[in-house]
């Protein structure tokens, strides 16, 4: 289990030195993530959804240790992540092995001067997972697991299409036999027919290897296909989290409802898309209270002043039939039972 507790991350805005000297108080900046808690269990897929700039990538990077939170803590199977990674090399390496990440752009995440086979072999050698003589065999098995041919090992990244490169990235991430895989928009750069191949692959690998998969995406339709649980983010905070079926059938937070209403529909069912009013506010100036209130059709005076608590959607009555699969919402109106 990866447990993230009250994570916050702020990126200060670069300023000239004289402005920094003159200014009292906190420096201006972007609050990318604020007070965010979530659990990722082994063998489950949690999707993190939100619009661009909401901080979902920062959350993913903090969960694998690429980014250090300003406040809060991440524990991986009970071990504090960031303290272990900055501690002695041995335990740090052992922990890092269990967490891997797949990035959006397979062009940028593979070294163009490394043969694909070498890129996949690197984690095996780095973590000394097998004797050097067995490395080529293990790499070949990984290539086959992601639907590539062992004959592709001596080729260069540029000789592959986008979808194939993403398969290589997945093979490389799986090489260290991680327990948790964080995928940040793994199919957004791919064409539809290729996206389907990669999504099917991820779903199969997750089930076969009982991975804890965090799937970060802006696309609700894709999320519906891969996830067990969905968490929706808005401007650095979680606004709703629920089992997939619940979230799609009975969304509670007004933002989730608007997102679902605005998603394009292939079915030509005549369902009109409901545009979300207003723009995503400047993340430099997140509105006070509930950050969604300027766009919310139900906003009340309280929403402008008070940040809503992150609590059970049903007012605490008979929640969570399955442990870990709770329905939580951060909205005053839902908490009061008025929505």
């Amino acid at each position: 289990m990866i447990e993230a507790r009250a994570l916050s991350r702020r990126y200060p805005w670069p300023q000239p030195w004289w402005a920094r000297l003159r200014q009292a108080g906190p420096r201006p900046g972007i609050q990318a993530v604020a007070d965010l808690s979530l659990d990722l269990a082994e063998g489950r897929t949690l999707a993190l959804v939100g619009e661009s700039g909401c901080g979902k990538t920062t959350v993913g990077r903090m969960l694998v240790g690429l980014e250090t939170p300003d406040a809060g803590e991440v524990r991986v199977d009970g071990q504090p992540l960031h303290a272990t990674l900055s501690g002695p090399a041995g335990p740090a390496l052992a922990l890092r092995r269990r967490l891997q990440m797949v990035f959006q752009d397979p062009q940028g995440s593979l070294d163009p001067r490394w043969r694909v086979g070498d890129a996949v072999a690197e984690p095996l050698l780095e973590h000394r997972l097998c004797p050097p003589a067995e490395v080529p065999g293990r790499v070949a098995a990984l290539m086959e697991a992601v639907g590539l041919s062992p004959d592709d090992m001596p080729r260069w990244p540029h000789q592959f299409s986008g979808g194939q490169r993403q398969r290589v990235s997945i093979a490389r991430a799986l090489a260290s036999e991680p327990r948790y895989l964080i995928c940040d928009e793994p199919t957004s750069a791919l064409d539809v027919s290729v996206q389907a191949q990669v999504l099917n692959l991820l779903v199969d690998l997750q089930a076969e290897r009982r991975l804890g998969l965090l799937f970060i995406s802006h696309d609700l339709a894709v999320v519906r296909y891969v996830a067990d649980q969905v968490a929706v983010m808005y401007l650095g905070r979680l606004v709703e989290q629920a089992p997939k079926a619940t979230l799609f059938a009975m969304p509670r937070h007004p933002y989730t409802r608007l997102l679902l209403g605005a998603a394009p529909d292939l079915g030509l069912s005549g369902r009109a898309r409901t545009p979300v009013p207003g723009d995503l506010p400047d993340p430099m100036a997140v509105p006070g209270g509930c950050a969604f209130h300027p766009r919310c059709p139900h906003a009340q005076a309280r929403c402008r002043d008070e940040i809503p608590a992150w609590g059970p959607a049903d007012g605490g009555q008979g929640d969570a039939p399955v442990p870990g699969l709770v329905h939580r919402v951060a909205c005053h109106l839902v908490a009061d039972g008025r929505l």
């Binding site: 290729v194 389907a196 999504l199």
Partner: peptide, 24 residues
């Protein structure tokens, strides 16, 4: 037909997406 079947849809409850093998 393959392209349309490959698109994940909000209404759809298929366990697997249809896929077109290979790429353009």
């Amino acid at each position: 037909a393959g392209l349309i079947a490959a698109v994940p849809d909000l209404q759809d409850t298929r366990p697997r997406l249809a896929r077109i093998p290979g790429s353009m």
